[in-house]
Amino acid sequence: MFVTVNGIQLYYEVAGQGPAMLLLHGNGEDHTTFDVLAKRLESRYTLYMPDSRGHGQSSPVPHLTYDEMAMDMAAFIRQLGLEKPVVLGFSDGGIVALLLACRCPDLVGKLVVCGANRTPKGLRAGTRRAIRLANLLHHSDKLDLMLQQPHITDKMLGAITAPTLVLAGEKDMILPQETRAIARAIPGARLLVLPGEDHGSYVEHSDTVWLAMKPFLTGR
Rank of each mutant, 00 (worst) to 15 (best):
V166S: 04
G81L: 14
T208V: 13
G122W: 00
L100G: 14
H138W: 03
K121Y: 12
V5Y: 01
G200C: 04
T127G: 02
H139L: 03
D72Q: 01
N27P: 00
K155F: 00
L47Q: 11
H138M: 08
M73K: 00
L123F: 14
R103P: 08
H199G: 00
Y66A: 02
I131C: 06
L137M: 12
E197C: 09
T32K: 09
M156G: 09
L88W: 12
D30F: 02
N117T: 10
Y48N: 10
A101R: 08
G188W: 06
E68Q: 09
H138C: 06
R103Q: 13
E204C: 07
A74T: 04
V3D: 07
G81T: 09
D67P: 01
Q79D: 13
R78N: 08
L175V: 15
V108T: 12
A15M: 12
H151T: 05
E178R: 06
M146A: 13
T33L: 15
V5G: 00
D92G: 11
T46K: 15
L137E: 10
L111I: 11
L88C: 14
S140D: 10
K84C: 12
Q17Y: 05
L100T: 11
L24Q: 00
T127Y: 02
R118Y: 00
E204H: 02
L145N: 11
T161D: 10
Q149I: 09
G94H: 11
L217F: 08
K84I: 10
V86C: 08
M1G: 07
H139T: 08
S140L: 04
I77S: 01
L192M: 13
H31Y: 08
H205K: 10
P120M: 14
I131N: 03
C114N: 13
M146C: 14
G169I: 01
D106R: 09
P163L: 08
P150M: 03
E29I: 07
A15R: 11
T164V: 07
P19N: 09
